[in-house]
Amino acid sequence: MEDHKKFRLLVKAIYRLLLSLFGLFAVMVFTLLFIMYNPDLFKKADLNVGEEKQYVAVTDEEDFDKIENGIHLRTGLVDAEGLMTVVNNCTNCHSAKLVTQNRMNKERWVSTIRWMQETQNLWDLGPNEEVIVNYLVTNYPPSKKGRREILKDIEWYVLK
């Protein structure tokens, strides 16, 4: 009787192993087919960053830096003078959203750049620093409003 239980456990283990291997094989086949029928998905765009080159996957080279309604679609940044300098220098390390949510004046942007250079290994921006700071100060200045405006003229009532 004991041998029968061991045999059944062994059969179950082999069955699970074979099922797992079949699942893995199926995923590999579907992945291979997907890659074969979508070759443009893995084109590479060359982003020059100083001496280094960075490669990113793009779906369509024509749409890579497309601007629509004054917005750079890939990053969401405003289309203005200095946009591509900001894209090429800032979005290599972090999201453009980090740039747009941190609205600062010129002194604070310069201070933030110095902090990134001292602690985050940001390279020397050279003449690009002025272009970047001017773009950021012009297009993402500090906002006077907080999260929402103060409520005014509210007629309050007591809940019963």
Rank of each mutant, 00 (worst) to 15 (best):
L24C: 08
N89V: 02
M36W: 13
L17F: 09
G70W: 03
F25H: 08
E52N: 08
K97E: 01
T91K: 03
M36C: 15
G70R: 06
A96Q: 06
G76H: 01
F42V: 08
T91M: 01
P39K: 12
P39F: 05
I67T: 13
N92Q: 10
V78C: 12
A45S: 10
A26F: 14
E61R: 12
R74L: 06
A57C: 07
E51M: 06
V29H: 10
G82L: 00
A45E: 11
Y55P: 04
G23D: 04
T85V: 10
E61T: 13
L77A: 09
E68T: 14
D60E: 11
L33F: 14
K43R: 13
F30Q: 09
L77Y: 01
L33C: 13
R74D: 05
V86L: 04
N48R: 02
F22M: 08
M28A: 15
I35N: 10
P39C: 10
V56H: 14
V86F: 01
T75M: 00
T31W: 13
L18I: 10
P39N: 12
T59I: 12
I67E: 05
H72Q: 02
L33Q: 15
V29Y: 09
F34Q: 07
T100V: 03
N88M: 01
V87S: 04
F64W: 03
L47K: 00
S20D: 13
L77M: 12
D40F: 11
E52F: 03
Y55N: 05
A26I: 08
T59R: 07
A57S: 02
C90W: 05
V29N: 12
F42T: 08
Q54S: 12
N92R: 07
V99I: 11
L17Q: 13
F30I: 15
L24M: 10
N38W: 06
L73P: 03
V56W: 06
N48A: 02
D40R: 08
V27Q: 15
L32W: 14
P39H: 10
L24T: 11
T75S: 07
D65K: 01
L83D: 06
L17R: 13
G50E: 05
A57F: 01
H94T: 02
L24G: 07
G76P: 06
K97T: 04
L21K: 11
F34T: 09
V86R: 00
L33G: 14
V99P: 05
L98H: 11
L83Q: 08
L98N: 15
M84I: 00
K44H: 13
I35M: 08
L47Y: 06
T75A: 01
Y55D: 03
N69K: 14
F25V: 05
D46K: 10
E51V: 08
N38I: 07
A96E: 07
E68D: 12
S20W: 09
T75D: 00
S20E: 15
G50W: 04
V78A: 14
F25L: 10
E81T: 09
V27S: 15
I67F: 01
F25M: 11
D65T: 06
S95I: 00
V58S: 01
